[in-house]
Write a protein that binds this DNA or RNA. Structure first.
Length: 111
DNA sequence: TTTCCGGCTGATT
DNA sequence: GAATCAGCCGGAA
């Protein structure tokens, strides 16, 4: 069915530049559903992870913490490594300066 | 189809 | 600061 929300989320995530991060709520809000933050993670879970075209690792929670279950195809360690590779400093607790690295949303709906 | 769960968040308690 | 509650929406059963 490919809801607009899903497409929007994926599209947004793909637009996240290197060295930047966005929170689930931020992405959800950009899609018009500020409360659907959980769904953002759900979408990334069901579709992408293995798709390196989509920087899912740049999507974290609003506290700059990698809140993953640890039972994924991806793990916290993997995500942390990818973030570090992007030039983002991540603590061993999987915490990063979200305030410093957060991605500014460019409001746009459909091209 | 319905029901339940979940990588979240913000507000309360 | 930890625990609870409510709200959102896509998957999986």
């Amino acid at each position: 069915m490919t809801s607009d929300f899903k497409k929007n989320v994926i599209d947004f995530v793909k637009k996240i530049p290197r060295g930047r991060v966005a929170s689930y709520g931020q992405v959800a809000s950009a899609c018009g559903h500020p409360k659907a933050a959980r769904q953002v993670g759900g979408i990334l879970r069901g579709l992408n992870i293995a798709d390196e075209k989509i920087p899912w690792w740049r999507v974290i929670n609003n506290r700059g913490i990698i809140t993953i279950k640890g039972n994924w195809t991806a793990t916290k360690e993997l995500q942390r490594g990818l973030l570090v590779k992007d030039g983002i400093k991540v603590s061993q607790d999987f915490v990063l300066d979200f305030y410093k690295y957060r991605f500014s949303i460019s409001v746009k709906g459909d091209p």
